[in-house]
Design a protein around this nucleic acid. Sequence first.
RNA 1: GCCCCCAUAGUUCAACGGAUAGAACGGCGGAUUCCUAAUCCGCAAAUGGAGGUUCGAUUCCUCCUGGGGGCACCA
Length: 551
Amino acid sequence: MLRKRIESEIVETVNKLWGDEVFQANLKSFKVEIPDERFGEFSTNIAMILSKPLKTKPIEIAKKIVEKIKTGELFENVEIAGPGFINFKLKKNVYTELLKNILNTGERYGRKEPNGMKVQIEFVSANPTGPLTVGHGRQAVIGDVLSKVFKEEGFEVTKEYYFNDAGRQMDLLAQSLWVRYNQFFGKKLDIPEDGYHGDYLVELAKEIAGKFKADYVGKWNDEIKEIFKEMAKDAMFKLIKSTLERLKVQFDIFFNEKSLLEDGTVNEVIEILKSKGLLYEKDGALWFKVSEFVDEDDKVLIRSSGIPTYFMTDIAYHYNKFKRKFDRVYDIWGADHHGHISRMKAAMKALGIPDDFFNVILHQFVTLKKEGKEVKMSTRKGEFVTLDELMDSVGVDATRYFFAMIDPNTHMIFDMDLAVSKSNENPVYYVQYAYARIKSLFRKAREKGIEYRKGENLDLLCDIDQEKLLVRDLDLFDETLEDTLRDLAPNKITNYVEKLVSRFHNYYTDNIILDTDNRDLSNARLNLCKGLETILSKVFDILGISKPEKM
RNA sequence: GCCCCCAUAGUUCAACGGAUAGAACGGCGGAUUCCUAAUCCGCAAAUGGAGGUUCGAUUCCUCCUGGGGGCACCA
């Protein structure tokens, strides 16, 4: 990475001038940045940082550094500006070498060697009680994109979907479905207040009525409940999986909460906690001493009815993850699960699991705006827009791009009407158009009889700033992925690619790429386009959007 | 009451503590004898309020105001 090379040049220079101690003491806020274009290609704040320890004006420090550093392989021009920034322009061959590297490495460019770390990302994890909503969509895209970045950065990644197909919610679903089935045959029955009111059960009830006729009308017992539950579950999972497939999100493992009870993990966890004296009984229930670890009230693990709480099974689930030898796990949760985090951390500590094992990526909610009104979404009340409906309206690419482009920490307002009416002006098309343009250039080159020769004529590039900056931005791909993992924020990638593509569109407008009177230059520029195509292709794969040959 | 996230242009979003706060959509005005105008160029338009830390704050800290979400033997 160019930035790192510049950093080490500066470090070396500072060490020569003032010794290692000065630098080490002030390392923290030292930076090489990408400045506004009018200042150059790179810049550093080193002189400002050293001003205090050296008791010298930043300008004076900058002067000394510039004097010393000027004779390098790297820099074409180094100058001081503003309050003491040092701005750099690099020699053109630095850029052409970099481009050559990208061209030679191709699809593998930027991919890190395996680092031996096993990471698990758990997301969506919706119980099979209804169709996936746009909220799940946000989570699915965040999880999927981050998984790909982890892989690219050398981690071994497992994508997991955790679900519960037992318990009260499923009972309510079964009952709600049964009521819809009865209603189909004209019975006057109401869905329980806290049952599932969505239309999707009406459809399913119709199918069931076709299959079983009126066999279960007016009859309700545990056996029938199980039958309806099973049918509901199968239908919902089928629906959920088809939605995920359409969104191009695949999971490695679907993990059933029930298995934790069946394979004894829950009991094992209880035994461990008991042996450490962290459990006690009260009011017929079994409590965990959360308060020993964090400033919170103790919580019930086993209800007085003997049934474990969600907290209990979730602890067991994470204990199970730990036993599966993941180095780190990331749970992607909606903002409503926030309160659960510190309790879980307490439990991890109690089980002796290292602090950095359990990580949560919390994302804020998606509010939908439809016909000018905000729609409060609730799966149970049947008031929601499904992920499928969203994809119907704006397409898969735009759906994925839209969810990826917003910081998970930000509450997201999704204006459906706008998304539909403006679908042709979505940023995803802006980005994809650049890719299509490049593809078109190569087609056109063949038509015009301009031969593309990989890696040749590169010395004709980078005499203009646009080309230097384009290559510099290609180089930023690497650190964009690092930033994405550091902040666990996929929107770093969309920001990056939009800037990159914008630069290309400008370049394309201002310069003729294919010129039959200047075939060598044309070939040089085709090489630049090829480099861009390589990076765009990687970015699109990570974002999971398509790569159109033409638009 | 306590805890978490957020507050930036008319709208939806950006901005590792850096220089004149960027885009997109919307508004106004331009560019096509030439590789795709789903593009490009120009104009108008924003950091909720008060303090603090810093050479330098949209960013960090405190308080206030306003949104969202939590504070179960629900998940």
